[in-house]
Amino acid sequence: MKLLVCISKTPDTTAKIAFTNGDTEFNEEGVQFIMNPYDEWYALVRALELKEAAGGSVTIINVGTSANDAVIRKGLAIGADDAVRIDADPKSSYFVAKQIAAYAADKEFDVVLTGKETIDFNGSEVGGMIAEALDMPFISYATHLEMDGNVAKITRDIEGGAEVAEVSTPFTLSASKGLAEQRIPNMKGIMMSKRKPLNVVAPVEISDPSKVVGYTLPDAKESVKLVDPENMTELVRLLHEEAKVI
């Protein structure tokens, strides 16, 4: 089975978020980056499990500059066989999806896996757009995946419950929590990762129909006000006049 796992670089959850260039770009200075957990913990690990069960190969792909190589190496250390980096600034979901689809178009991957979303933009867009561009079925928010030959039975989260779908390869899915269990790279994998191929390819020309014109941060949280438990009148007044929730 030939598997392609799309990985993104996201700020560590403790990173302080700030913008630059007239609030149109994320300021990366001093930010610690990690592999997007949905890509790493669920999409990549499930792909490795499928390969371990049925043979084949796992390729990871990323759109970004050489600054992303450390994140890509981690994917190789966890167990991917090789990696591809499309050497371009990942300007938007559309741009990323089109680049990946252009690379994958003639490679005959059986399954393309993404995380259900990145933990920075939370867009959940790339998987669907890749599937569309490759003319593949797309199953989102997968929490369970079993393969029987070339037929996959996939459980996915829906509002208030779960849905089970069947689909034949090739297809694209986005991975949710539960699809696999995280693997921390071991030392052997770390040392092997440097010997695995990381192929850098040039991007294709893409005309992006949209662009970001500005970011804003949410309002800062206000400090806590302590109210004497005997003073319910004051609590009601604060909820009514200041919080405006009653």
């Binding site: 450390a70 190496r73 250390a77 921390i184 030392m187 770390i190 040392m191 440097k194």
Partner: peptide
């Protein structure tokens, strides 16, 4: 000879993940 800064960084990160989890 196989240990460069990237190996050091990856080892530290893996150790920290084990510690955290």
């Amino acid at each position: 000879k196989d240990y460069d800064q990237e190996s050091f960084e990856m080892a530290l990160a893996a150790a920290k993940e084990i510690g955290d989890q």
